[in-house]
């Protein structure tokens, strides 16, 4: 026991990643629910979100939740991105790999044979995570641009003006929801990753689990 502790390996994912991931996930869900509430006040498409799926009870409540969650999400995002860049985590673990590896992993995933070593993301995960991070950044930026079209006028201009930016913000939300459906389904398919994301896990403790456990996370 003691001897194994001497060479205690780093828990993965790092606590920075785990804590900011869950704070970010909660605030993102709050942003989506309250965003739907705000959308319902003046829909741009011919439908409204069902009241049970919205947060805030009325427009003013939705806005209060949306901004409260925004600050939490931005704080978690800054810590996560800062850590990801400085620790090399993004470069090492999230940077998408070449199309060949993606093709291989996709083929394996479809046959439910994708390997996933602890602390190591496969090509599809890398693609999805990098993609959703970019989309989340665009969501925040387009959201800021419709919140502050005067003070951050340059940002609104970058997004093509107020009306276009509003639609971009909505489209990015849709992409995040689509990601979430896949992401949560995969996490439930391979519960060990869920456990790992909550408690962390030691790569040396159970490296073999990774082979053909039956699913791509």
């Amino acid at each position: 026991m003691l001897s194994s502790r001497r060479v205690r390996p780093r828990r993965t994912p790092s606590p920075f990643i785990r804590i900011t991931h869950w704070i970010g996930a909660l605030s993102m869900l709050a942003m989506i629910g309250s965003g739907w509430q705000i959308y319902n006040a003046s829909p741009i498409l011919p439908f409204e979100f069902p009241a049970w799926a919205t947060l805030g009870g009325w427009l003013g409540g939705g806005i209060a939740w949306h901004f409260a969650a925004m600050w939490v999400l931005m704080a978690a995002g800054v810590v996560y991105l800062g850590y990801g860049v400085l620790s090399g985590h993004f470069r090492r673990d999230l940077r998408p790999v070449g199309p060949r590896a993606i093709g291989r992993d996709m083929a394996q995933a479809l046959r439910f044979r994708l390997s996933h070593a602890a602390g190591h993301y496969n090509a599809i995960q890398r693609l999805l995570y990098t993609g959703v991070l970019i989309v989340a950044l665009l969501t925040v930026a387009s959201g800021l641009s419709i919140w502050k079209p005067v003070q951050l006028g340059w940002l609104t201009w970058l997004f093509g003006g107020y009306d276009v930016a509003r639609r971009i913000h909505f489209a990015m939300m849709t992409l995040i929801v689509a990601f979430l459906v896949i992401h949560i389904a995969l996490a439930l398919l391979v519960p060990s990753t869920l456990f790992g994301m909550v408690f962390g896990r030691r790569p040396s403790a159970a490296p073999e689990v990774s082979v053909q456990e039956g699913g791509a996370r």
Binding site: Q37, T54, L55, G56, G57, W58, G61, A64, W65
Partner: peptide, 10 residues
């Protein structure tokens, strides 16, 4: 601000 949270959190 009692109307802010809505739903069950009301």
């Amino acid at each position: 601000l009692s109307m802010l949270s809505g739903c069950a959190l009301d």
